[in-house]
Design a protein around this nucleic acid. Structure first.
Lengths: 146, 146
DNA sequence: CTTGAGCCTGTAGGGACTACAGACCCTACC
DNA sequence: GGTAGGGTCTGTAGTCCCTACAGGCTCAAG
């Protein structure tokens, strides 16, 4: 263990961060390489040291990827946080743009949820060989904003 | 144009399908290669011919990818439709499994939506140089099932 | 002071596309 | 009929987002 108990918790190693966030060391390396995660400070021996900020940011990124956001979209969202030189007006415009995207996703997922829930309840426990409910998957879901 | 007006609409070319679904020809080719889309029938000249089924399936896949489902997950969902030799009990189990995943996504997206909506309204039109609302993005979102 | 685990860097591989290249086909215009 | 242009075909190579491996440095323990 490198961590000393009197430090302000900003001393987790790369692997520690990876485990805490539920990913692996290589992914963190990649995100740092492309600038999605910032370069952390280093200990005297050259080891990277991460804190609570990095942990939250990384979890946000990982979950964002699972939710289908691209790296570029996440950069956009995180730029709101990194808070460079945006005016509040710009922030407003950016958030509104993201909101449309997010609400569409929620809508589609809820339709998918509904269809699967219907399938599940109607099939409940049964052993019907040629389950006609399956047709609903495409009948109900005219998915998306197209 | 290859389409003849008296055919039953099952005669769209690959590019036609791509445009209708909002993607490109190469992606369709790839999905056929890995078996996510079926091999379509061919015209006498060897050209592929697609119909309404292919269109719906492709849109489902594309949107599914945007929603963060992996190819394997989509194969699982579509296997419900391709309806091989599943019992209704198996279908039930599979749908229930997917439902958990989908509901978690909905929950996270709604939290993200709420945060962004808050940012948007509070920033509305303003020109505040150092918008403190930005902190909320990480304050509110303890995202995910981790 | 060696052993072994963890960190460092660089590079190569895999999944999901994306782009390019050369040949075939088909309509249009001459 | 011929040919120019575009669309389709197949194959292969490249890109993006990671993931895995290789060789060397660092550190705590025995």
């Amino acid at each position: 263990m490198l961590n000393k108990p009197d430090d302000p918790l900003d001393h987790v190693t790369r692997n520690g961060l990876a485990q805490a966030a539920g990913t692996n060391i290589e992914t963190i390396r990649y995100y740092e390489k492309i600038g999605l995660m910032p370069e952390p400070r280093r200990a005297e021996n050259g080891y990277r040291l991460y804190g609570q900020d990095a942990h939250r940011r990384l979890k946000f990124i990982l979950r964002g990827r699972e939710l289908g956001f691209t790296i570029e979209e996440l950069k956009g969202l995180l730029s709101l946080v990194d808070g460079g030189d945006y005016s509040c007006g710009q922030v407003h415009a950016m958030t509104v743009e993201h909101l449309g995207n997010i609400r569409a996703k929620i809508g589609d997922l809820m339709r998918l949820e509904q269809t699967l829930a219907d399938m599940s309840t109607q099939c409940e426990g049964g052993e019907v060989p040629d389950c006609p409910i399956i047709d609903k998957l495409f009948a109900n879901i005219e998915i998306g904003s197209g």
